[in-house]
Amino acid sequence: MIATVSTLAVAITLIVAIPKMPRWDRVKKSFFNGEVLGETFPKLLDAFVLDIKIFLWSVPIILFIAMLVAVTRNSRSPALFPLRILAVVYVDVMRGVPVLLWIYLIGFGVPGLGLERPWNSPLLWGTVALVLTYATYVSEVFRAGIESVHESQRAAARSLGLSNAQTMRHVVLPQAVRRVIPPLMNDMVSLQKDVALVSLIGPIEILRQAGIDKSKFASFTPYVGAAIIFLAITIPMTRTTDWLLERERRRTSGTRVS
């Protein structure tokens, strides 16, 4: 009841206040032009297919590299010390520089080496830059998850005779991954948006298409169209995760504290 009233109050204020702004008419014409939207929207959707493709290629590779790095950093064998160092350096370096900079550096740098087609495509190397950067973010999420599994779980698994690797695979990782699904989805939503950064080195995906249409129609409406398309993907993504988590929680846990 209180929630409804306060929501209503905020909504009414916004609806009344915004059109009172001095330049609302101009903003409305430039950003919310129905005609321009209708004309550019299909092209934006077409361009968005490339975003989706880049995203879908990247995710499995990112998860794989991230898991490998996280498990390596968490290994305890003295023999793996050099690998642990390597993993730390990789994460520190990739994570310490903005994604955009890596896209420029790798996306322009590697094709500059004079590789043959198709290995000289900025699209390919821009995506590689995205994957390598995001893998470090996600590896840190996995690592936090692994470390959150209580030591006693390992003790129980080892006492049953499971090897280190088996303990990791059957006991630690399943719990770790479940726990980090919310932050993981957060990174995936970020990735879905950052895919658009690859456009800055050439490929025509949605953000670049919107830029082209903006100039053509002298209107910012294509950007709003692009924003709508992004939201149409990212919001259901987040809601689905919440729903999956809730279902899992209900399946495995006891009575809920209200």
Partner: peptide
């Protein structure tokens, strides 16, 4: 050697 712990340590998943 089997071991049982004070805090059970069952695997919750």
């Amino acid at each position: 050697i089997g071991m049982v712990f004070q805090s059970y340590n069952l695997f919750p998943h």
